[in-house]
């Protein structure tokens, strides 16, 4: 089963929840994979001692226009929704704006003169890591399972993280429990990540910003018909509006994490809070159980 930990608003604690959920499940010997889909700034791997096992380049196709074969008819430009083809008919200038290309192939399809071929460009990398810690690696010889970390990392300057996110999700597979640490926001990167999930956990905070983005995320998940529940992080901050919203909308609150300086300190030092604080380990274990039951 695939569980996406998502939010809408950035900085609510997606990676915090993902890494701690991964920790409690791995410690219990479950076959669990954590895929960091926040390809623009992945950092889940930073919380664990792990060894890189492999890495794959993620590429996309972009058009190459043969200026001799091109008749400057403008059909490819017309087909391109993303303004990735710049054409000045009168001056016979045609240019591919590589950063704007989405690899949809419409221009190649549009060209009647065989002037467009395609080349690969690198968008980033998907890497696979194995935990060093024996406690967590789950190296169970009888079942052959082990806990794995996958990281999608966008090349700096690449225009869209979506192909890298998709590749990371593919790499994570569907065996056992797969946790997707989702990218923030509610646009394409978010939608592509949660679309792949069987269940979604939205992490929010009790502030007007948290509530605003929670509402947008909920609207999208309802449209996608994804079952979901909510975690309120930094409980005690802000106001009660998030809680009132959850009650009115009949949305399940599966975990509340208090606003606690010590949690922030452990997290900012790259630690796993569930490892250092028994009360939070219990909370995350209970939440893991609730999520796994929801998906049955």
């Amino acid at each position: 089963m695939i569980v996406a930990i998502a939010s809408g608003k950035g900085g609510t604690g997606k990676t915090f929840v993902s890494t701690n959920l991964f920790y409690v499940l791995a410690k219990k010997g479950k076959n669990v994979t954590l895929a960091d889909c926040d390809a623009e700034e992945p950092n889940s791997v930073a919380f664990f001692d792990c060894v890189k096992l492999s890495a794959k380049d993620v590429v996309q196709k972009i058009p190459v226009i043969d200026q001799n074969a091109c008749t400057y008819c403008g059909k490819c430009e017309e087909y391109c929704t993303y303004n990735a083809i710049f054409l000045l008919k009168e001056r016979r200038i045609i240019r591919v704006m590589e950063d704007l290309c989405h690899d949809c192939g419409a221009c190649s399809y549009a060209c009647n003169f065989g002037a467009i071929t395609e080349k690969d460009i690198s968008l980033g990398e998907v890497a696979r890591y194995k935990l060093s810690s024996e406690l967590l690696s789950g190296a169970d010889s009888s079942t052959g399972t082990c806990s794995v970390l996958i990281e999608g990392r966008l090349r700096v300057g690449a225009y869209t993280p979506v192909p890298v996110i998709k590749a990371a999700i593919r790499e994570a597979g569907i065996e056992g429990i797969v946790i997707l640490d989702s990218p923030p926001g509610t646009s394409c990167p978010f939608i592509h990540t949660v679309s792949s999930a069987d269940y979604v956990v939205l992490v929010t905070e009790p502030t007007p910003f948290g509530l605003n983005d929670l509402k947008i995320s909920v609207a999208i998940l309802r449209q996608l018909k994804k079952p979901f529940s909510v975690i309120v992080n930094r409980g005690g901050l802000g106001n009660r509006e998030v809680y009132d919203y959850l009650t009115t909308e009949n949305i399940r609150l599966i975990l509340e994490i208090p606003f606690d300086r010590e949690i922030a300190r452990i997290y900012s030092e790259g630690g796993i809070v569930a490892e250092k604080r028994e009360d939070l380990e219990k909370k995350f274990e209970k939440m893991a159980e609730l999520i796994l039951n929801q998906c049955k």
Partner: peptide
């Protein structure tokens, strides 16, 4: 015409004025 363009407004506007 590119004010509300989803993506690539700059490039489309460059074409608009250059043409």
């Amino acid at each position: 015409p590119n004010k509300e363009s989803l993506e690539g407004a700059g490039i489309a506007s460059a074409k608009f004025v250059a043409s």
